[in-house]
């Protein structure tokens, strides 16, 4: 029975929608729709990223059970994510075995670069998608099958906006910015830098040729995330890489 008007039909509610009726929409029911808003409103109260966060939690547990550390690597296109990984593989100064899940809209170029550098890699092509999500990583991890106690880099689609919102199940988020992009990026893309655990400032070998203030970049990034670690380095000439290896080996 309708709890509001007693009309003999069940009220609309989340449970039992199959026998719900529609108050006031048509005249077949016969009484004025004075209580209509209450009877037709359904509380949902569901976080829009709940599914992704739930799956990311599964990924995190799966990785933890195997002692595997995953890092979500994010930057704009061309900042040097894949180059940093190639250099890290060639440097051979990380205590764990490394494998990589590469995310790009198209091509397998980056996975091939990682394989050429001597590590296992699989490529995820997102098509029109602008970010990796936890479902893709779940499938990617099954395909990659990383060894226990190893290190997995999740190289996100080059984009300083969208990937910031999607938890993949990683231990930490690493954001790379290159000095040719400009030191104003933390304030222009605050969500990405607020989400980061480590910011790598790459291409410092080009600092003599560009107006990039490393201190300003670091200061602005820490205004968004006070606990942020900032590591300036150059993949090309190798300066600063020691601190990067130390950070990885402390995970």
């Amino acid at each position: 029975m309708c709890g509001t008007c007693g009309c003999g039909e069940s009220d609309v509610r989340v449970e039992g929608l199959a026998d719900g009726h529609r108050h006031g929409v048509s005249t077949e029911h016969g009484h004025p729709p004075v209580h209509e808003p209450r009877s037709r409103t359904v509380d949902i109260e569901t976080a829009l990223l709940a599914k992704n966060d739930h799956l990311a939690g599964h990924n995190r547990s799966w990785l933890a059970e195997r002692g595997i550390v995953a890092l979500n690597l994010m930057s704009s296109p061309g900042a040097g994510k894949t180059s940093l990984l190639e250099r890290t593989l060639k440097g051979a100064r990380v205590g764990r075995e490394i494998s990589v899940i590469e995310g790009d809209q198209e091509t397998t170029f980056d996975a091939q670069r990682i394989r050429d550098a001597g590590a296992r890699a699989i490529q995820i092509n997102t098509g029109s998608g602008c970010h990796l999500d936890a479902t893709m990583i779940e499938r990617g991890l099954r395909a990659l099958d990383p060894k226990p106690d190893s290190l997995v880099f999740l190289e996100n689609v080059g984009n300083l906006v969208c990937p910031a919102l999607f938890d993949l199940g990683e231990r930490a988020k690493v954001v790379i910015i290159s000095v040719t992009e400009g030191d104003d990026k933390p304030l222009k893309y605050p969500h990405m830098f607020a989400a980061a655990d480590l910011v790598v400032v790459n291409k410092t070998d080009l600092l003599p040729y560009v107006d990039f203030d490393v201190d300003r970049c670091a200061r602005d990034a820490r205004r968004l995330k006070p606990t942020l670690t900032v590591l300036p380095l150059s993949v090309r000439d190798g300066s600063g890489l020691g601190a990067w290896y130390d950070w990885l080996n402390a995970l």
Binding site: V12, G20, R22, P37, R40, T41, V42, D43, I44, E45, T46, A47, L48, L49, L187, P190, H191, A194, R222, R223, L224, K225, P226
Partner: peptide
């Protein structure tokens, strides 16, 4: 998202503003 209090501290907890949810629907 700039976490800075007038007292000079950057140790600021975000209490609200990051909500992202479906609240309700009307059938």
């Amino acid at each position: 998202l700039l976490l800075l209090c007038d007292c000079g501290s950057a140790d600021v907890e975000v209490l609200a503003g990051r909500e992202l949810a479906v609240a309700s629907v009307v059938l």
